[in-house]
């Protein structure tokens, strides 16, 4: 499935992602990692749960409000429900053992020049590339 190359929108979106991370650090002193935010749902008794839930609520609400006032975001999940579920379980296990994902390691960690985050980011970028290449060009049609 072909998707439109959107360098400008993607760059602006990236700047906003970074701005969200900078706001959270300046005001609360926290890393904007989505894996850690999900702990807000899974550990409701934690003292960090309320602000993490607030971040998650904001992240869901912003695109929702934008679409209600007329914005449109391209979306397509070019895979089956079974593969989405299998992929979801593997992502959940992976980000827990790897202590982070694209936002925590790939943005916040690299911005702090963390060697751990550099290793993590290079590793998951490599295995994502391998997975897509194998699924599409070796085992795919």
């Amino acid at each position: 499935m072909v998707t439109e190359f959107t360098p400008f929108a993607s760059f602006v979106g990236g700047v906003l992602i970074g701005l969200g991370a900078v706001i959270l650090m300046a005001l609360n002193g926290r890393i904007a990692g989505m894996t850690a935010m999900l702990g807000g749902v899974l550990e409701p008794q934690s003292p960090d749960s309320p602000w993490r839930l607030a971040f998650l609520a904001g992240a869901i609400a912003a695109p929702l409000i934008a679409t209600l006032i007329g914005a449109e975001f391209a979306f397509a999940a070019p895979t089956t429900g079974v593969l989405l579920a299998i992929g979801g379980v593997i992502v959940g296990v992976g980000v827990t053992y790897g202590s982070g994902c694209t936002s925590g390691h790939g943005v916040c960690g690299l911005a702090r020049l963390s060697p751990r985050s550099l290793v993590a980011t290079l590793t998951f970028m490599a295995t994502t590339f391998l997975t897509v290449t194998l699924m599409r060009h070796v085992f795919g049609d």
Binding site: L84, G87, G88, V91, G94, V95, G98, T123, T127, T131
Partner: peptide, 19 residues
């Protein structure tokens, strides 16, 4: 760290979704 990140990439590549 490396094994978890490698698994995350596998799941990301299968689903297209990261957290």
């Amino acid at each position: 760290l490396i094994g978890g990140s490698a698994l995350f990439g596998l799941g990301w590549g299968i689903s297209g979704f990261c957290p």
